[in-house]
Design a protein around this nucleic acid. Structure first.
Length: 911
RNA sequence: GGACCCUUAGCUCAGUUGGUUAGAGCGCUUCCUUGACAUGGAAGAGGUCACUGGUUCGAGUCCAGUAGGGUCCACCA
């Protein structure tokens, strides 16, 4: 067997095992009715994406779940893939074109799409490659892309189906228009941001009443040429006499526009009068509808002002137009005043520019299965973790609005609608659309394509990814579904994602999942996943979101180079508490690496401590244990091992990843390395005791590697093989079953192992004594001395325990001798659970310092005694507190008194 | 305007149903290269648990309110 090197070098180990796992097809998930299925679909990253810390966290957690499920004996399947990400990808390729001084229109639709596809061929696999570096155990043979032919058919098929069911319609409505991307956006793609600007107070002269004005306040004077009315509240006495009269529009082509009364107007704001520009504001549009007002659109699609804005403004960009409009108003005497103002403006998520409300024809979806989707979460068929996100979901579902699913882009699923050539699409009526001779909707298009023109728009990206949990399992093609194992793997098990896409993705997948399963089945069988785990958002050390523009996002691949994939995984999980945002700190990743090194060296120590024996299975190791030779430390470490297994079981069941990692860290580092391994060193010298002690180490290491493997897959696989836990040609990751706490306990019991429940407490007391005496040494400048001499004055019982553990104590204390006897006068001493101990020193001690130390100790004791006595003297406490608590307090008081008396005796001896 | 979250050691955070003297990692101080590991070991300093009230024998934990920070929804021009 290869010997273990002095420090862990992740690079080659990671490469070696990932290749071996791939080679063996160890990530494949197959239909296996003898096992419980466990399936995760990856949140498909954008093809344009490169790995971010968010991906690292998200995918590490998925890999942990998948690997743990495998170790638990489930048939685990993790389906990978990428999302075509309509706007994002198209923007990236257009930016590339711009460098060549070309636009997509120069190329034309077909050539442009070729270009995007070739870009995707070249760069689209990068992020998946990066996930492999992280150790992601996806079934790569199932990798899918939302624009794969089969996936696309699923997407378009759903459009046709929902259209036929009446869920999809074509409508001319106010949409969120992005003047840079030149497309409509859904409400979810608009981000409200406070913007500092100006509030302009403008006066409109009442027709037929020279010198009488109505004043309004607006942030957008450039839209005044689009004004078609002034609205006031119907019960506003200030304007009661003016409703029905007209005012002159102070900007743009001359016009007289009416004053109307509408309850939507807020009397409290400004003067209580509102200018109505139906083409450029949602509320105005609705008021316009109610009062049958015309729509005057003064903006082009790209946000420049058009001819209707009038000379002086036409041709200007909307922001330049705003300034110019203010100037023109001022010149005309209509600008009363301007004041600094901050208001919320909707921004395009992708292009980061203010959106324009714009009246356009779009395709809309009335969501299906809304009530069921609410019920699925409310009734717990889908569980959110942390649970509080379900409120956010339910609130959105209860106020759900129709979804604008068409995008004026080229990259995406082109909507499967064909119009009869020559039809004016701006003027199509509902009846026209319903007429198959005029508008054709089908998956394969009209039988005779001549004379038909396909819809230009494509579908919103999310209108493809909402099918992800079942379209990746071959839906809707029966044959492919069978091959992919749809009946076995659907519903999938857990979805791991960020709460920022609850609306975009999670909610929509739930509705799609319910729509495309048999409505006769129970909700539990139709939901797309059973649990949803929401990660926190990774922020930098200052708490800012990580972003490219801030440059505050470390490159995960650099971190892998520096700390190893396992170190990165362990570190990121350890700082990711459930549902809270995460402050990224590189030193935690370093901590992950250090932990790996600790694990590595503990195994190295095991290898150096004695010959390896049969480690090939849990029973094999258990048979090597010799319970009659167990000492308290053996009992205690096994007790802690079982408890840690239990803690990890529980944490994993509750998606408490960082709790699991912390339990493992504490157990392995403190209980095992710092104590058990150290006290073992004395026993390993004894041929009599060595075998049992090594077997216990093997048991602990084996179980630790198993529990740790989901978090740190590479190093655990390597050590597993190095220590001979595995059979040749088999993998820890695939061919081994993790014994959970109950299996571990039962199997141990079958091998005659009965743990002494008192041992753990005894070891804790021993640790306490060791710690006290080390402190005593350190206080007297002997911390590093290895041949200190101690004298113990204690009861027979106490001395008995010291004798039982003499070799250990000498090693742990750095003592050459520990003898029983009266304490030498003036020697530094302290009171422990194992009697009073004195440190024997050549040099004269400082009695004054000793006195001070012991006096301080007495003060602390007195304080605790007083507190405990007060509690016990309180009748209300003794009457009402549970007996166990009262007994505990009494016992504590007795201990404190004994310690106080002994300390006083030591103090007296100093004089 | 509505909803949710956070405030515990210098920093980042645990603290599950209320119960001894509130923990971890990092950082800091002192000592130690001893045969697994200096990516390490030992010892130590450091906290009126944001504030105010309440419930209780007992509150970091439960309730109400206040202050500060954050997130998400919402058509106030």
């Amino acid at each position: 067997m290869a010997s273990i090197t002095k420090s862990y070098e992740p690079r080659d180990v990671e490469k070696k095992w990932y290749a071996a796992w791939l080679e063996a097809g160890a990530f494949a998930g197959r239909v296996n009715p003898s096992r419980e299925p466990y399936c995760i679909v990856i949140p498909p990253p954008n093809v344009t994406g490169v790995l971010t810390m968010g991906h690292v966290l998200n995918n590490t957690l998925q890999d942990i779940l998948i690997r743990r499920a495998r170790l638990e004996g489930k048939e685990a399947l993790w389906i990978p893939g990428t999302d075509h990400a309509g706007i994002a990808t198209q923007t990236v390729v257009e930016r590339e074109l711009r460098k060549e001084k070309k636009s997509r229109r120069d190329l034309g639709r077909e050539k442009f799409l070729e270009r995007v596809w070739s870009w995707r061929e070249e760069k689209g696999g990068i992020i998946l490659e990066q996930l492999r570096r992280l150790g992601a155990s996806c079934d790569w043979n199932r990798t899918q892309f939302t624009m794969d032919p089969a996936y696309s058919r699923a997407v378009l098929g759903v459009f046709v189906d929902l259209y036929r069911k009446g869920h999809i319609y074509r409508g001319k409505r106010m949409v969120n228009w992005c003047p840079v991307s030149l497309t409509a956006l859904s409400d979810e793609e608009v981000i409200m941001k406070p913007v500092k600007g100006l509030l302009y107070q403008v006066r409109y002269e009442v027709v037929g009443a020279p010198g009488t004005f109505i004043e309004v306040k607006t942030t957008r004077p450039e839209t005044i040429p689009g004004d078609v009315a002034i609205a006031v509240h119907p019960e506003d006495p200030r304007y009661a006499g003016l409703v029905g009269r007209k005012v002159r529009r102070p900007l743009g082509p001359a016009a007289e526009i009416p004053i109307v009364a509408d309850a939507a107007v807020d009397r409290e704001f400004g003067s209580g009068a509102l200018k109505i520009t139906p083409a450029h504001d949602k509320v105005d549009f609705e008021i316009g509808l109610r009062h049958k007002l015309p729509v005057v659109d003064v903006l082009e699609a790209d946000g420049t002002l058009n001819a209707l804005a009038g000379p002086g403004l036409a041709g200007l960009d909307r922001f330049a137009g705003r300034k110019k409009a203010a100037e023109l108003l001022k010149e005309g005497g209509a600008l009363v005043k301007e004041e600094p103002y901050e208001n919320n403006v909707g921004f395009s998520e992708r292009a980061d520019v203010p959106i324009e409300p714009r009246l356009t024809w779009q395709w809309w979806l009335r969501y299906p299965r809304v009530a069921e989707a609410v019920e699925a979460v409310r009734e717990g068929h889908i569980r959110f973790h942390p649970e509080r996100w379900s409120k956010v979901y339910l609130h959105w579902m209860e106020n759900i609005q129709d979804w604008c699913i068409s995008r004026q882009l080229w990259w995406g699923h082109r909507i499967p609608v064909w119009y009869r050539e020559g039809l004016d699409r701006e003027k199509l009526t509902e009846a026209d659309v319903a007429d198959p001779n005029k508008v054709h909707v089908s998956l394969d298009g009209p039988a005779d394509p001549a004379g038909w023109v396909q819809e230009d728009d494509v579908l919103d990206t999310w209108a493809s990814s909402w099918l992800w949990p079942f379209a990746t399992l071959g839906w809707p093609d029966e044959t492919r579904m069978k091959e992919a194992g749809y009946p076995y793997f659907y519903p999938t098990s857990t979805l791991v994602t960020g709460p920022d896409i609850i609306f975009f993705w999670v909610a929509r997948m739930i509705m799609a999942g319910l729509e495309y399963t048999n409505p006769d089945e129970s909700l539990a069988k139709r939901v797309p996943f059973r649990d949803v785990y929401f990660t926190g958002i990774i922020r930098d050390a200052q708490g800012r979101k990580m972003s490219k523009s801030l440059g505050n996002s470390p490159d995960p691949l650099d971190l892998i180079e520096k700390y190893g994939a396992d170190g990165l995984r362990f570190g990121i999980v350890s700082i990711a508490p459930q549902g809270q945002d995460i402050r990224f700190q590189e030193d935690r990743i370093e901590g992950g690496k250090n932990f790996c090194n600790k694990l590595w060296n503990a195994c190295r120590f095991r290898q150096m401590s004695g010959p390896m024996a049969d480690n090939s299975s849990l029973p094999a190791i258990l048979s090597r244990l010799e319970p009659p030779k167990f000492d308290a430390d053996d009992h205690a470490i096994l007790d802690r091992l079982f408890a840690t297994t239990r803690a990890v079981d529980q944490a994993m069941a509750g998606f408490e990843f960082s709790a699991a990692v912390q339990a493992l860290y504490g157990f392995f580092w403190n209980d095992f390395c710092d104590w058990y391994v150290e006290v073992s060193k004395a026993r390993l010298q004894s041929p009599e005791l060595r075998g049992n002690c090594l077997a216990i180490q093997d048991l602990v290491l084996r179980q630790t590697l198993l529990l740790l493997h989901p978090f740190t897959p590479f190093i655990t696989e390597e050590l597993w093989q190095l220590l001979g836990y595995g059979v040749a040609g088999k993998f820890l990751m695939r061919d081994v079953r993790l014994s959970d706490s109950s299996v571990l306990a039962r199997t141990s019991s079958d091998h005659g192992i009965r743990l002494n429940g008192e041992a753990a407490a005894e070891v804790e007391r021993l640790k306490g004594t060791v710690s006290q005496l080390r402190a005593l040494k350190a206080a007297h400048g002997e911390a590093a001395k290895k041949d200190s001499v101690f004298v113990v004055d204690g009861a027979d019982r106490q001395w008995g325990l010291v004798e039982d553990n003499l070799a250990k104590l000498k090693r742990m204390l750095g003592a050459a001798a520990i003898t029983r006897g009266p304490l030498p006068p003036s020697a530094p001493a302290c009171v422990t659970a194992h009697g009073s101990w004195a440190l024997v020193r050549e040099a004269k001690g400082d009695p004054a310092a000793e006195r001070a130390r012991l006096t301080k100790e007495l003060e602390t004791l007195a304080k605790h005694i007083a507190g405990t006595e007060a509690r016990l003297a309180n009748k209300a406490f003794t009457d009402k507190a549970p007996p166990a608590v009262i007994d505990g307090a009494k016992k504590q008081l007795a201990d404190l008194h004994a310690k106080k008396a002994e300390t006083e005796r030591l103090l007296g001896g100093l004089a």
